[in-house]
Write a protein that binds this DNA or RNA. Sequence first.
DNA 1: CTTGCTTGCTCAATCGATGAAGCAGAATTG
DNA 2: CAATTCTGCTTCATCGATTGAGCAAGCAAG
Lengths: 339, 339
Amino acid sequence: MKRGTQTKRTTIYDLAELAGTSASAVSAVLNGNWKKRRISSQLAERITRLAEEQGYALNMQASVLRRDRSKIIGMIVPKYDNRYFGSIVEQFEAMARERGLFPIVTCTRRDPALEVEAARAMLSHRVDCLIATGATDPDRIVELCAAAGVRTVNLDLPGSRAPSVISDNFGGALELTRRVLANCKKEYGEMTPLLFIGGRGTDHNTSERIRGFRAAHAEAGVVVDESLVLACGYAPEKAETAMRQLAEKTGTLPRGMFVNSTISLEGVMRWIRRSGHYTDRMPMLGCFDWDPFVAMLGDHIEMVRQDVPGMLDAVFEIIDSGNSDLKVVQIPPVVETIG
Amino acid sequence: MKRGTQTKRTTIYDLAELAGTSASAVSAVLNGNWKKRRISSQLAERITRLAEEQGYALNMQASVLRRDRSKIIGMIVPKYDNRYFGSIVEQFEAMARERGLFPIVTCTRRDPALEVEAARAMLSHRVDCLIATGATDPDRIVELCAAAGVRTVNLDLPGSRAPSVISDNFGGALELTRRVLANCKKEYGEMTPLLFIGGRGTDHNTSERIRGFRAAHAEAGVVVDESLVLACGYAPEKAETAMRQLAEKTGTLPRGMFVNSTISLEGVMRWIRRSGHYTDRMPMLGCFDWDPFVAMLGDHIEMVRQDVPGMLDAVFEIIDSGNSDLKVVQIPPVVETIG
DNA sequence: CTTGCTTGCTCAATCGATGAAGCAGAATTG
DNA sequence: CAATTCTGCTTCATCGATTGAGCAAGCAAG
């Protein structure tokens, strides 16, 4: 064992000296290919024991510098403030470790500049592969990575220059809208148009969800006015402001809503509590996202739970296969009824 | 610019050749100490421009191998499934980046073996410093790090071998319990003992919170029966089971509860919905944790919001100062009233 | 014209791990 | 007994960046 506050780490050279052998023998033994290099099992065992005793730890910087692959896999993610991204990161780490990869994750707060900075930092640290989750500008990241020969997969939001894995936003939104409309019918005896709120009109997911939202209305023969589609951004404050403005303009508020994320729902609920609207009867809600406490919020909440394990299976299938086709894999989400 | 799918990265040697100079000059220019090394500003500018044009990116593995400090800072964290740890990670990353450090975070799912494995992996990657957040066995991690000369700070849960930053669990629990008791008094006209549920009896935080819970009862002259303190673990299922068993044993359930985390509250709420208890009147709730949707769950919920920015300020103050005193810094949390 | 100082660089060792090539000595073959 | 093969190692170059030491040219002072 190391004595005292000695800061110097044990290297293969130290072990070689202790074992009375060469550093390359030690290296061969410790990285497991000693059979190929014809090291005797006695020496292998002696070295292994010494390494254990001395608390030897491989210096990855040196190892990676020498090898061609780093076995480091990076992920950038917008936020850690909701269950969806939380479970993506958790699942990603577990699956990376299963494959003997070292996962590094960083959060970029939906900030394009930070996304680029983080991608650069990861490239400097020589990731073998980078997953861009919910990136505002996935193509920019792919471009940086491509210049360094690093493979990329887009997750949650698609890009045009790398394979992408996303939810079936149209299908999920269609089904979610259908259910909320049905709840309205059951509750009020008739169907009236819902409100769509949250997300960015410019992003693929939001526009697909709006398409599904419209399709479900069309199917039911319900006309949706333009003023009821509010892609006001993701932040709670944005949703709160949008609700206030809608209430000011309109006399009667819609009986049901399609909320584009839990984060937006946070703002919607805050507005409802503060404004005193909907006090007699809560609106029929649908949320394209899942959270256990949201599920407990009321009796008529429908939620879309995106299939995180399925999405990450698809991501790692792309990575494991080495395939780089520019395909977009769509994973069906699950609509869960509560109450 | 790199052409095509060229996978070879530009190195300082490539730049040196292009600039008709030496690699050491390039290195000096690009890492900013060219003045000390008496490189002319013309050459410096030429090299800088070339690096830009060629899309040069420093190879951190090589750089770190040569230097003594890696400027990599690691954090292990139990889960990403709640706002508390989410904001810890987000804040940590931001503060690390502010200091020019590269943050790497990994989640260890409250699994002691995974904690050790993750710590080892981080040491192999030569982190300068490791923050062990909510570790089940912080001292084991500190021991590993100490052997490699790596500094450690414990966060959220204290250890005995490294400085620790935690919430004032006793104080927070005392105040939280007082408020829930007061709510009971207001609602029912009298104070009856609350239920304590969630957490591990063996961990410091839970035992301190129980101490605060008891102190508030004592203060109010309310006797707490042993059977009302259920440190059943953190997982929702554990809390659900504990509630069921309590209901089976006891005729009357307590009018209020102190729930030790949002994760445990998830189980409690699930049990309440499923079992049909508390249907006439919800229990007065206190939760030692914060979540925006929990805040909307009912009219009588008190929540303790731990001061994440304050805690991380304390962590980085310890790191920045290089101080290694075995102190435990306690940060007061904030009790927020809802409804 | 020599000595000494400054300027502006280059050289070469180094960090630790890896693996191709090589080299003794033992064992086997003809 | 010589030739070949096999066994079990060692030697050395390499990955890319960093940095102490050194060196040549220019200039000033004596």
